[in-house]
Design a protein around this nucleic acid. Structure first.
Length: 226
DNA sequence: AACCAGGACGTGA
DNA sequence: TCACGTCATGGT
């Protein structure tokens, strides 16, 4: 019925469960989702979401581990940490000057939450948090039904003819969410599907949508009618 | 050696 | 609104 949902099923059958978001402290790539995430995990997901901007997650793991061995994977510790020490810890994931600032901006906001789930709107007002990072935090940290769209998602959907090249973030997000909502009525299953789908797209994207021309060898069916 | 990675922001037109 | 430059380390 839904080509998008079929796309998900094909990717899942191909690559299997991805188990995102990978938590580094309690076990990297652990495949149980742990509903709901505890406080430390939420915070780690948020930090990782900032750190992973335009970088590979393996670099992020190094940064998070640098913080962890300093026992600094906590709000108060990072806040009190010397700024240069923070920059040094997150250096492996690049843009360390910007990201250190972003992290401190986020922590200021995070403390006002008192453990509550942030709204998307509020997250977007924090410097350094754009649409993708906000959805990343909400989807994987707070288990909210916010589909995460990234560069791979757009490239793939453009290549397969689902959206136009100039499609904006919100349009692509709506396409994915509306398609999946029609097919999946159970909320928890829908959430896991959002979480897995994005992870599967990244896995698939690394193989077929990182080098130009994009989509070479991609086995997913095109949306275009022949 | 060039190119890209699980982006966001600031600027000028 | 939008195209473009900038931020930076690390792997291929």
């Amino acid at each position: 019925m839904s080509k998008i949902y079929n796309m998900y099923k094909t990717l899942y059958q191909t690559y299997g469960a991805q188990g995102w978001w990978p938590i580094t402290v309690y076990g990297y790539h652990k495949l149980d989702y742990m509903f709901p995430r505890n406080k430390d995990e939420k915070f780690e997901v948020c930090l990782g979401s900032i750190l992973t901007q335009n970088t590979t997650f393996t670099s992020v793991v190094k940064s998070l581990n640098n913080l962890h061995v300093k026992n600094a994977l906590h709000v108060d510790r990072i806040e009190r940490m010397d700024i240069d020490e923070l920059k040094d810890a997150i250096r492996p994931s690049g843009y360390y000057n910007q990201k250190a600032e972003y992290i401190l901006e986020f922590i200021k906001f995070y403390k006002t939450l008192n453990g509550e789930t942030p709204t998307r709107e509020a997250l977007l007002h924090v410097k350094g948090i754009g649409e993708e990072t906000a959805d990343s935090m909400l989807l994987y940290g707070y288990n909210q039904l916010e589909f995460k769209v990234d560069a791979y998602t757009k490239r793939m959907l453009v290549h397969l003819g689902f959206v136009d090249e100039r499609a904006k973030y919100a349009e692509i997000k709506s396409l994915m969410q509306n398609s999946l909502k029609k097919c999946i009525k159970d909320e928890k299953e829908l959430l896991i599907t959002y979480q897995e789908f994005h992870a599967l797209i990244v896995e698939h994207g690394k193989k077929y949508y990182s080098k130009k021309p994009y989509g070479m060898g991609c086995f997913l069916p095109s949306h275009r009618v022949i």
